Simulated scan of single mutants.
Amino acid sequence: MKIKRLSQCTLEEALTAWNKGFEGYIVPIKMDLPAFVNRMISEGLSPEKSIVVFMNSEPCGIIMNGFRENNGRKIAWNGGTGIAPEFRGKGLSAAMIEEVFNIYRAEKAHTAVLEAIEENERAIKLYKKAGYVITDHLLYLNKKLTHIEPGFLKENHFSIKRLYPEQLQSLSIYDSKAAWQCQWQSAKHGEAAVLLSEDGNEEGYILYKRILEAGGRTERIIIYQLKFNNENNYEKMTESILGHLFLDGDDSIDFTAVNIAVSNPASKALLKLGFEKKIGQVMMEKPL
């Protein structure tokens, strides 16, 4: 076994390690080279701090890593651990994780975080053995909504203020501990809005990305974060903020909420609106 930093490998070797490493995975995530490079850029993954494992000179495993500052503390994110099927269950993963922990310590990271699909019991068991604990459960929710859904046309006393995603971090209620891919840094070409009460108080916010059809209508909205200040009124506020996202000419929009936490009352409001769970994940954390 030989472990190299991804920056020491060719992109083709790294891509081979990724695609081999996720063969037979619960969710298909095979990528071509442009998608692989785009993911590294969009998620802030570091080639210098990620590793590729070789067996008999062939790439067979990979762990992708990213680092961000959160309230003065450095967070290390495992953005994907994959091992080729023929090498699974042979102790390779433990050696890879230990190498990654050495990188995290050298970077003076304060906390290590990751997400794992809840059905992937083998991986979760491995991470727990390495010292990670489950801190929350995450939902991938979806529903196509029309503008005449119950609640959207009811009179409400909320308005919204548009923001750049970067401005969300100044809000007192901004969730800086949201899943890595749902933070404002990962919302490339995203939008943000704050929900305001009649007296101008900030009652909540949404971080999202709008995907338009060729004719200019909204085809899809990906919700990265949805959070409210007043948990007692979250159902009405959820209806209000989603209703405000309809543009003139939008009859229906396919909404997808990505990795919204079960502990977040907004997830319950979406489920009550009829959103369906497509995938569930666990959020895991380890102090360093």
Rank of each mutant, 00 (worst) to 15 (best):
T256S: 10
E43Y: 15
P265N: 07
S172W: 10
G72I: 10
K30P: 01
I124P: 08
V133K: 06
A35R: 14
E203Y: 07
A179S: 09
N38M: 04
G21F: 04
Y25E: 01
E149L: 09
K129L: 12
E58M: 09
H244I: 08
W77H: 06
I75Q: 02
N156S: 10
I63R: 02
L288D: 06
S186Q: 13
E115V: 08
E69P: 00
L45F: 14
L273S: 05
N259Y: 13
Y25W: 04
A179D: 06
D175I: 04
Q225A: 05
N229Q: 07
V194I: 15
P85N: 13
A179E: 10
K125M: 02
A106Y: 07
G91T: 13
K74C: 07
L15K: 01
Y224D: 00
L92E: 00
L45T: 01
I51G: 01
D248A: 14
H137T: 09
E285F: 04
A109W: 13
N120R: 05
D248Y: 12
T238R: 15
M283K: 14
N142E: 15
G89N: 05
I223A: 05
L168N: 08
A193I: 08
G21C: 02
R162C: 01
I223P: 01
I221F: 05
E203P: 02
L15T: 02
E231L: 13
A261R: 15
Y140T: 05
H157C: 00
E213I: 11
G21I: 08
E98Q: 11
G190D: 11
I148V: 12
I241V: 04
S186W: 03
E213G: 01
W77V: 15
E98V: 14
L145D: 00
I26R: 03
G21K: 04
F158P: 00
E239V: 12
Y104V: 04
I279C: 01
A193Y: 11
D32T: 10
K161I: 07
F87G: 02
T238N: 06
K49I: 05
A257V: 14
E121V: 12
I160N: 02
K30H: 07
S42I: 13
K90Y: 07
I83Q: 12
E99N: 15
